[in-house]
């Protein structure tokens, strides 16, 4: 590996044929050895960005260096330096787990003996030795992620790109994947991970960037980002069938006028407000709801989470964004002409 940061992105933009702007001038850096999270809802530009970094997709403009190498000028060297596991993509269902790994090794220039040895080692690491000679198509979701991860590690890459490595996994499998990733990072592998799960980013990443609609909206350590929200979070769940109800708008307007309220937004049939002192603000918020004729189902006061960081920067909860999301996926399918999922 040459000098420079693990990932350097300057003014990166991507416009798909047809004019959809998926990534709109983002810049960030990932240091060597870092565990970096790229956080955002579906369709925010995460997958496009990771595909550009991994040389799978050409960029429209900007400068991108991975492992000190320019992805456009020197794609082959970049490919040799990195390991990539995209969203449940690229598994060869008819191949046996062990054969899949050995072929990966051979394609990255390992000798047969090296590939055999490394495959056995990684099967052990990801806990798949007992099913190594079964076809990948027979693996469960968690096993598929783990064999894919092992495949990305065959050639000992210094930088690992993972696109939503735990999406769709049951809680136990998620934790197993997390533990493997933490172990790899502890051994010095730089990890660049995209996720739409705040808890995942919070647990794993030392630093993260939040992307929304192709723009970076925040960057920093999870602790610093949460501290940046400031104060407490008051969440009020109310009983109303329709969140577009006039009463809801009235309540929101009233809450926003209260003293000590920094931000208030609706999300998921409830209201989330950032306040300097939760205990002091709660009674006034309840009154505002009563005045608007809305009955409160539940009120909670918590310290900020990454969800609140996202809400603060985008005005939406990440889960809400899923509904209008998939724009990026749709566009990708359109470009490819196939439904990838």
């Amino acid at each position: 590996m040459t000098n420079g940061p693990a990932v350097l992105v300057e003014g990166l933009g991507k416009t798909y044929p047809g004019g959809v702007r998926a990534v709109d001038g983002i810049s960030f850096e990932v240091e060597r050895g870092e565990f970096f999270g790229f956080l955002g809802p579906n369709g925010a530009g995460k997958t496009t960005t990771i595909k550009i970094l991994a040389t799978l997709l050409p960029k429209t403009e900007g400068r991108v260096e991975v492992a000190g190498l320019d992805v456009t000028r020197d794609p082959k060297a970049v490919r040799q330096a990195i390991g990539v596991a995209l969203q449940e993509v690229g598994l060869d269902d008819l191949s046996k787990g062990r054969d899949f790994l050995e072929l990966q090794g051979l394609l990255y220039g390992l000798s047969r003996a090296e590939a055999r040895e490394r495959a056995a080692e990684l099967l052990e690491l990801v806990g798949l030795s007992s099913v190594a000679d079964r076809r990948v198509g027979s693996y469960s979701g968690g096993m598929r992620r783990r064999i894919d991860l092992a495949g990305a590690l065959m050639h000992n890459p210094g930088v690992l790109f993972l696109d939503e490595p735990t999406t769709g996994l049951d809680p136990q499998s998620r934790i197993a994947v997390w533990e493997h990733l933490e172990e790899l990072n502890a051994r010095g592998v730089t990890i660049f991970l995209t996720t739409q799960h705040m808890d995942e980013a919070d647990r794993l990443c030392r630093r993260l960037a939040i992307i929304d609609h192709g723009h970076l909206v925040a960057e920093g350590s999870p602790a610093a980002l949460k501290a940046g929200v400031g104060g407490d979070i008051v969440h009020v769940a109310f009983n109303s069938d329709d969140s577009a109800d006039d009463r809801v708008d009235a309540a929101l307007a009233a809450v926003r006028d209260l003293p000590g309220i920094r931000q208030a937004d609706f999300a998921e049939r409830g209201l989330t407000a950032t306040v300097s002192d939760g205990g002091a603000a709660a009674p006034a918020i309840m009154t505002a709801f009563q005045d608007a004729n809305l009955s409160i189902a539940n009120l909670s006061i918590t310290r900020p989470s990454l969800d609140d960081v996202f809400l603060q920067h985008t005005g939406r909860q990440i889960r809400d964004s899923d509904a209008d999301g998939d724009a990026e996926d749709r566009m990708w399918s359109q470009w490819m002409g196939v439904n990838r999922r």
Binding site: A54, T55, L56, K76, A77, R79, Q80, V84, L86, E88, V89, G90, L91, D92, D93, Q104, L107, Y108, G109, G151, V338, R340
Partner: peptide, 15 residues
């Protein structure tokens, strides 16, 4: 192979 993403996997490798 294109739809399963296996072609992408090959394209990601330095071959």
């Amino acid at each position: 192979d294109m739809m399963s993403g296996y072609v992408d996997k090959l394209l990601l490798s330095p071959v």
